[in-house]
């Protein structure tokens, strides 16, 4: 059979499912590849209706019979396709550095009701991206405050 996402699945979950060729005589369950392209965790409940199958009578060719051995041992585990650790490591380099003068006001406004650790993170973030903000009215920087009327 070929398993494909149902319209209900496409509408309800912000997930992408790959159409997968399965042999239901091999195992009681089949594995289909799902990608979560969004930044939020998605929970799928047991028995959730996620797809439909279609009987394939004749297979012309199969590109790969199964997952590579390494991946096979990690069934059910999730693989990151987006690495964030390098950014986080770099941010640590800016921890406990003095906040640039032109961002002190922004920092004070940003850290209300935040924990000590969060305040340190905000300070490090502002230090890291300090050059992105205008230092004074003559410095356009990478961002600029502009006023315009709304029709």
């Amino acid at each position: 059979y070929i398993v494909q996402p149902s319209n209900y699945f496409k509408d309800k979950y912000k997930l992408v499912m790959a159409s997968t060729l399965v042999d239901i005589n091999k195992l009681s369950t089949c594995k289909v590849r799902v990608l979560n392209p969004m930044d939020v965790e998605v929970t799928l409940r047991q028995k959730a209706d996620v797809g439909r199958e279609e009987l394939i009578k004749r297979i012309v060719s199969v590109i790969a019979e199964e997952e590579p051995e390494k991946v096979k041992q990690k069934h059910g585990q999730l693989r990151n396709v987006f690495e964030v650790s390098s950014t986080q490591t770099k941010l640590h380099q800016f921890m406990d550095q003095p906040i640039p003068d032109h961002l002190k006001d922004l920092y004070e406004k940003s850290v209300d009701d935040k924990s000590q650790e969060q305040q340190r993170s905000v300070a490090a973030l502002l230090c890291k991206f300090g050059e992105a903000f205008s230092k004074n009215e003559w410095d356009v920087g990478l961002t600029n405050v502009a006023e315009h009327s709304i029709d």
């Binding site: 369950t29 990608l35 979560n36 799928l44 996620v50 199958e53």
Partner: peptide, 24 residues
């Protein structure tokens, strides 16, 4: 036939997963 999730599963953001499903 319906294709249903075999067990509760959480899929983190920006990841891909192999999902166990039943074909009922």
């Amino acid at each position: 036939k319906r294709v249903t999730v075999a067990d509760d599963v959480k899929i983190s953001g920006l990841t891909e997963a192999l999902l166990d499903v039943y074909i009922e």
